[in-house]
Nucleic acid binder design. Structure first.
Lengths: 226, 226
DNA sequence: CTCCCCTGTGAAGTTTTCTTCACAAGGCCA
DNA sequence: TGGCCTTGTGAAGAAAACTTCACAGGGGAG
């Protein structure tokens, strides 16, 4: 059963939303403010949060990173009547997952909700199983470089890889290639070219996402003088 | 020196943009189409790409994930005259980093460009040094759980942590806590509560981002029947 | 005070991961 | 044919990571 939290200061709207969601067979509860929502998050977890941007007290935009911190895997869908491109971009940069404009049709909302629940569910399923593999694959610097090289180049031959990595002992590279192959990250074409598998691409994507998550801290830094 | 790629089918605009960027002391080159841009990416890397959405041939939206794959750490700024909230959201979900609406003022553009270069630079700096630490920290399931717990709870006492993790041998938890402490991910308050440091929060954020990067594959799945 | 829980340390042992070395089959070129 | 490059394999050893065990100080409850 999917737990949904509806956060809106408009009593009528949040009540309606909960009713609609429950009619669709989803479990929903409500919060009247961002602070209220954050307090609820202390006690229980939700699969998805419908978050109004404009609210008295802590506003929605400010709440996004706070929620994200508290519940890293909860989908956050921002709702607002005062939509703008800038606003939408900022919401997503803050960590929201989706953005819908009020007033919305029930069908549109439900489509968005279902899509996001689906993504959340997929995430949960793959997580436990794959995460260990992925981290093991990415735990080694040489393997990370290899994945990135292959991600950029598409496919490479063994010795080109060895030279690109600047490793003298080719058997060392061989060892890590074997590890990557056994983890299902790479395979070989019939003519011995190494390339990423779907999982390998996924792992490579992980790398770049990690980098992205490091960026957040860049905000506080002084601007670059070119 | 920062390398910037301007991708726009409007010859005049892209020429102007390059001139402006160069006046500001940045190095810029241009591409007249997404395919042109992708070809260039084969040979060289860029710190930032200014990408028009509406172009003949491969359109910008389609190009975003292709560019992202080729150059995971290049900042992608989408420019478009046909701006809409939906469009902006989709761009960012595809992997763009920012979104600006045409026509724009030079000052606004430069601000966006500088901000993104700054983030890119930060990313590059931290990457090599911290990535090994982060992956070592995240390589172990128990440590991942610990980081997530602390991220959610804020701070916890030792035995609460042990019980939450459902580990019988408390010294085992102790070992991993020590590892996390030495990696600079957690510290202790004066009254022995464990909590995440800034780096720890960063690492915890990484975890959720990794999950996000796994989601992309969820698109192809059948919808949920509740 | 005594008992028990919390919080921890350090050493010994085990397992996993990584590196290095010895060796070899196949292809290509002179 | 001989020599050299590519692309491996497998074993042995080294290093790192992880687990387990023995022990211990402090604090609170009875």
């Amino acid at each position: 059963m999917n737990q949904i939290l509806v956060v809106d200061d408009d009593r009528e709207l949040r009540t309606t939303l909960v009713e609609v969601l429950e009619q669709e067979g989803l479990q929903a509860v409500m919060a009247r403010s961002a602070d209220d929502a954050l307090e609820r998050l202390q006690q229980e977890t939700f699969d998805l949060i419908l978050l109004d941007l404009v609210m008295p007290g802590t506003d929605g935009m400010t709440a996004i990173p706070l929620i994200r911190r508290q519940a890293p895997r909860t989908r956050i869908i921002v709702m607002t009547a005062y939509a703008s491109v800038q606003n939408a971009v900022q919401s997503l940069q803050q960590g929201a997952d989706d953005y819908i404009v009020k007033p919305f049709k029930i069908d549109g909302l439900m489509l968005t909700v279902r899509l996001n629940l689906q993504k959340a569910r997929f995430c949960e399923e793959t997580e436990a199983a794959d995460l260990d593999k992925i981290f093991n694959g990415l735990a080694n610097g040489l393997r990370r470089q290899t994945l990135q090289l292959l991600s950029r180049q598409g496919q490479m031959r063994f010795m080109d890889l060895v030279r690109a990595l600047e490793i003298e002992d080719h058997t060392k590279v061989n060892f890590h290639l074997k590890t990557l192959r056994e983890a299902g990250f790479i395979d070989q074409t019939s003519d011995k070219f190494y390339q990423l598998t779907t999982n390998g691409q996924r792992a490579a994507t992980c790398l770049s996402y990690i980098c992205k998550s490091l960026e957040a801290s860049a905000q506080a830094r002084p601007p670059i003088v070119p």
